[in-house]
């Protein structure tokens, strides 16, 4: 849009876009608002908007009754751990494919992508069996490993597309300047790749945090993360709107904040670099 739009058009655009934006955001906003209401105000008809006695009671009750912090801790461990483990494996792999490509690089990348397409339900029972056999059912380590695997292709891909943007000549220059493989990675590649690595970490924490097939099916009480915690509100507690809202708000708040930082990376990560 090279030309300045007329002010009038801009006003119309703005009003319309804000309306649509607020409409889409409304369920989230309503949940957050409700979490500060009493149960009675929460179901009042007509609904109460902003003018009610704001209370933090729901948060306290949710924490006390269902031990929110334990689930939160599980989520953090599982999302963080799977991302960390995944990066340990993905960074070298992406490095080698981006900077020392071979004839098979493309096939390997596409194959990795195809493992991501495997429908989880198709391998549910085998994984379940393996978990029982190795005593991994309802453990954080088990879930961490599974989520690491399901996100590994995305990590490799994202890193690959970022690394690809670093000109190979710079690494060659480092080699000419006397850097060995270790120095090359430490002093040249890593600092240049930090933004890409950070975005990859961010997106994968988000994806792991919100994952809701394996977390529901492979955990019971001990290792259940927030996705399972919320699912347990299904009923009858779900009818206590204020508490449900407080629990929901706590489950999504961390990731909403992270998510807002990662909009751009989201596109690249989820389209495997096909849209930038």
């Amino acid at each position: 849009m090279a030309r300045a739009a007329t002010t009038q058009r801009k006003i119309i655009n703005t009003a319309f876009a804000w309306m649509v934006g607020l409409l889409i955001f409304f369920p989230i906003m309503w949940t957050i608002l409700t979490s500060f209401k009493t149960e009675a105000t929460a179901i009042a008809d007509p609904p109460v908007w902003f003018f009610f006695d704001w209370t933090l009671d729901n948060y306290r009750v949710v924490q006390e009754r269902s031990d929110y912090s334990r689930f939160l801790w599980n989520s953090i461990i599982i999302a963080g751990g799977s991302t960390f483990l995944g990066m340990l494996i993905a960074i070298p792999a992406a490095w080698s494919m981006a900077f020392v490509p071979s004839k098979r690089t493309k096939d390997i990348l596409l194959w990795m992508l195809s493992t991501k397409m495997l429908p989880a339900v198709g391998v549910l029972y085998p994984i379940y069996l393996i978990f029982i056999k190795f005593g991994l059912l309802d453990t954080r380590i088990g879930l961490t490993i599974v989520l690491m695997f399901i996100n590994l292709p995305i990590m490799v891909w994202m890193l690959y597309t970022y690394f690809k943007e670093i000109p190979g000549e710079i690494l060659e220059a480092a080699r000419m300047d006397g850097a060995g493989l270790r120095e090359e990675i430490l002093y040249v590649l890593t600092p240049m790749a930090i933004p890409g690595i950070a975005s990859t970490v961010l997106l994968n924490v988000i994806l792991a945090w919100n994952e809701a097939f394996w977390t529901l099916n492979l955990t019971a009480a001990k290792a259940a993360p927030l996705t399972a915690f919320i699912a347990s509100y299904s009923s009858p507690e779900g009818l206590f709107y204020a508490k449900l809202s407080a629990a929901s708000t706590m489950a999504i708040a961390p990731i909403l904040i992270l998510g807002w930082f990662s909009q751009k990376q989201l596109v690249r990560g989820l389209t495997f670099g096909a849209v930038k």
Partner: peptide
């Protein structure tokens, strides 16, 4: 001998400076 040990210096078309 690896490039680092040949005692040669190279100037690239793209300059290949370390941006950070």
């Amino acid at each position: 001998i690896v490039p680092a040990k040949r005692g040669l210096a190279m100037v690239f078309q793209s300059y290949a400076l370390y941006p950070h």
